[in-house]
Amino acid sequence: MLLVIIFTIFAAITIISAGMVAFSQNIVYSAFSLLFTFFGIAGLYVLLAADFLAATQLLIYVGGILVLLLFGVMLTHKIQEVNLSNESMRLAPAAIVVLAFLGLLSIAIYRTQWPTVPVPELTPTTARIGTLFMTDYLLPFEIASLVLLTALVGAVFIARGRVKK
């Protein structure tokens, strides 16, 4: 029962802050709301006994990506104009589509007989994940690093100054 209450709290934080990300008129507010979304998801991970994921979620998303995002927002515009407009447009069609999608997902979820497993014990997973990355999942691990490298090369290339002819 306690778990349900905690789950509801985290889920609520995630959804409400996600809504604020989408609907806020000010891009800085949106960015800050994102912080809570990430936080809520980290909480959900904890509930699923995924301690490593929860920690990386906080470290990387909140600590890294979000800060970067805010830097980006601050640097791309003059800081004096805090009124960075971020208007929501075409609400009606979006609402219809989103509601339809929500409805269908709900139907699917409702009709499904969910397989249930007992709540896992909270044991540390970091070591196991580490071992798996170096053994069974070596290949995905390496390829993920190449994805990042490519993104890095691309980002540097595009961000760098103009080509000298």
């Binding site: 589509v97 339809a100 999608f101 269908l104 139907i107 699917a108 009709r111």
Partner: peptide
């Protein structure tokens, strides 16, 4: 894209 998914999904589920 979303409408595409919804239409297909709708046909399947409903």
């Amino acid at each position: 894209m979303v409408i595409g998914v919804i239409v297909i999904l709708g046909i399947y589920l409903l």
